[in-house]
């Protein structure tokens, strides 16, 4: 069962795109791959104020991921706690995973020649910390939720 999720409190989010860079710098990614993304709808006037809502998207860490079975080397894996991740040692960069994922989530890292995707910063999670995007969100709008606690 999936244990974690990242929740965005859109009321606090100010669309500063900090989380995207927090993620990239933590994973030492070059220009190109972006593992989490903030987006918003075009503005619409609500009671005189033009407004919008923000969405945060990384990887859905599907219960039954499309990306895992297509991977020819077993690099793409799902952990016990639900985190879907790429084992960098095994990955050959064929990007079959990206083709299989309905949202094209896995990205190509041109510096390593391998796939990369959000893994909830599992090294940090395993060390008792929170994902980079959540830890450093400019307004504390992102929350790392442990579902079993609810």
């Amino acid at each position: 069962m999936n244990k974690y999720m990242i929740y965005l409190n859109s009321k606090r989010c100010i669309g500063c795109h900090g989380c995207e860079v927090h993620c990239k710098t933590n994973k030492k990614l070059p220009v190109g791959p972006i593992l989490c993304e903030i987006s918003h709808e075009p503005l619409k006037a609500v009671r005189g104020v033009p407004r919008t809502e923000f969405q945060f998207r990384s990887c859905y860490h599907c219960e039954d991921p499309y990306c895992v079975p297509v991977c020819p080397t077993g690099a793409m894996q799902k952990r016990q706690d639900g985190i879907v991740f790429v084992d960098q040692e095994k990955c050959i960069g064929c990007m079959a995973c990206a083709g299989a994922c309905p949202w094209g989530i896995p990205q190509y890292n041109s510096e390593t020649g391998k796939a990369i995707k959000c893994d909830y910063c599992m090294d940090r999670v395993d060390a008792g910390l929170k994902p980079a995007c959540v830890t450093k969100c400019a307004t504390h709008a992102l929350k790392f939720v442990t579902l079993q606690e609810i």
Partner: peptide
Amino acid sequence: WIEGNPHILKGALCAKGSA
């Protein structure tokens, strides 16, 4: 790793700060 001073900003940083 760079984060906002946890005693003052509780980790918070903007995109420029990480860049």
